[in-house]
Design a protein around this nucleic acid. Sequence first.
RNA 1: GGCGACGUACCCAAGUGGUAAGGGAGAGGUCUGCAAAACCUUUAUGCAGCGGUUCGAAUCCGCUCGUCGCCUCCA
Length: 479
Amino acid sequence: MVNVYNTRTRSKEEFVPIEGNNVRMYVCGPTVYDYPHIGNARSFAVFDTIRRYLEYKGYRVVYITNFTDIDDKMINRSKEDGIEVSELAAKFITEYLTIAKQLNLIPATINPRATEHMDDIIEMVELIIKNGYGYDVDGDVYFNVPSFETYGGLSRIPMDDLSSRARVEVDEKKKDPRDFILWKAEKPGEPSWESPWGKGRPGWHAECSVMGKHYLGFPFDIHGGGQDLIFPHHENEIAQSAAAYGIETPVKYWLHNGFLTIDSDKMSKSEKNFSTAREVLDNYDHQAVRLYLVTGQYRQPLDYNDKAMKQAIQSLERIKNAADTIRGRISILEKIGSRESDADRKLAEASKKAREDFEKEMDDDFNTPGALAEIFTLVREINTLTKDVGGAAVLREALAVMIELVGILGVNLADEAQTGEGAGQAAKALKGIVDFLLELREGARKSKDFAKADQIRDRLGELGIEIADTKDGPTWKMS
RNA sequence: GGCGACGUACCCAAGUGGUAAGGGAGAGGUCUGCAAAACCUUUAUGCAGCGGUUCGAAUCCGCUCGUCGCCUCCA
C-alpha cells in the first residue's frame, strides 16, 4: 500500500487509483525558453522515480509531461535572441530531451505542446465564459476569481487576503484585482491565433488544464510539479478546469517537490542564482547526478554543492563495487565450481529483506533516503557474505535485486562493464586474453616476482582493466 | 502583513510516542607482497532553546530563537 502526501489535503493518504490498476499522471513540464537548471532536473528526477516505483508496484502508468512553447517568457526571449518563437522552442525541447536521457528519465507517454492545443484552449475559455466564470474585455479574457467559491482551496490562501493585495500593476480592465487572464489580445509582431475574441494567445497556463483533460480526462490521479507552482499556477488550473468542465476535483492527488537550493538559497532564474542542468551533467557522472537528486526526500529542500555531489559519487561507487564483487565471485565460481554454504542462505535472506524494506520506505511517500539506506544494508551483506557464497544462483538473485531497486531510483547498474560476460567474439577473446595474463601474473606472484606481477596489473590498468586480488583468485573489470 | 516549510553528529540525511537508520569524512584495527575494494570498532545520554502533557517525547502541546520559501515569471 502506497501512501502519498497530498498537497490538497495537507496529509498523507492511501494511494488508490481512480480506475483499477491504471494510474494517470501529469507533471508540469518546462517552458522551453531557456536551459533547464539543476532544480528543474530535480523535479524531473523525482517524478520519474515516483513513476518507476508505481510501475514496479504493478500499476500501469500513463505519464504526460508538457512543453509550454508559447507565453510571455517565450516571446520576450525570442525578441532578445532575434529568432522565431518556434525556433526557440525547438532548441530547448531538444535540450530538454538530451537532459532527460542523461538523467535516465523514462520517456513520457506523450510530450504535448501548448501550441498544438489551441483549439482545446479556446474551447475551454469559451466554456468558462459560458458558465459565468469569465468575461471578455477588448479581446482580453479574464477569469473572475470571486465567482469561483472554492478558489484558494489548494494553496489555502484566504480570498480576502488576496483581494487586499492588488499591489502590482493594477489592471483597469479587471473586474476584480484577483482576476487572472485566460486569453491575451494580440500585440503587433507576436504570435497569435484566431479566436472568438479576436486574434490572441493563451494568457496563463491554460495548456496544463487542457492537455490534462485531453490526454488523461478529468479527474485524473496525480498532478506533479514544484512547490512554487501551488500558487498561482495550480490554483488557477483547478479553477479553470472546474469552471469549464464542471468537475469539482479535477485531480485526486497533488504532489509537489521541494526546492533545490544553492548554498541554502533558492535557485532562481530571475536571481541569476542557478546552475544549469547542462553544466552539472557536463561536470559529473550522470548516474551520480541522478542519485544525488534523490538523496533527499522529495518534499524537503535539497542543497546543491560540490560536497553533496562528491558524496553522491562515493555512494554510487560503493553500490557499483558491491555489484562488481558479485560479478567477480560468479566468474570465480565458474572456475572453482560451486560449494554451497551457510552464506548462501544468509545472502538469499538478505536479498529478500532488502526488497521488503525498500518497499516499506518507498510506500511511505517515496522516502528515497530511507530506501537508499536499505540498499546500503544489502550492500554490506553482499560485501560480507559474497566471498563465502558458493551458489551462483543466489548471487545472481542478489545482483538482480540490487539492479532492480537501484533502477527505481534511476541508476542503471545493468549496463556496467561486466567481467567479460558480454556476448560477441571480441568480448570472448578479450576475456580469454585477460584471463591468460592473470594466470601469468598469478605465476609471477607465486614465485614472488612482484615486479612482473605489478607490471601486468599496471599495463592492464592503463588499458582500463582493473585487477583486484581476492582469496579465491583475481577478478577484473572494465573501468 | 497573510500562508507554509524547516532546525537531528564534522557534513548530507531517515526516523514523527517506546528509548537515535544509512551514506560521506575522521580515528584505530583486520585482511594484503603491494594496490584497490572490503570488513570490524569508534564519532549525538542526545535530536535549536525553554516549559508542559505522558510510565515514557527527537516525535504531541505552548512559547522563544534561527533559517528558508510562497503571496510576482519560476520545478
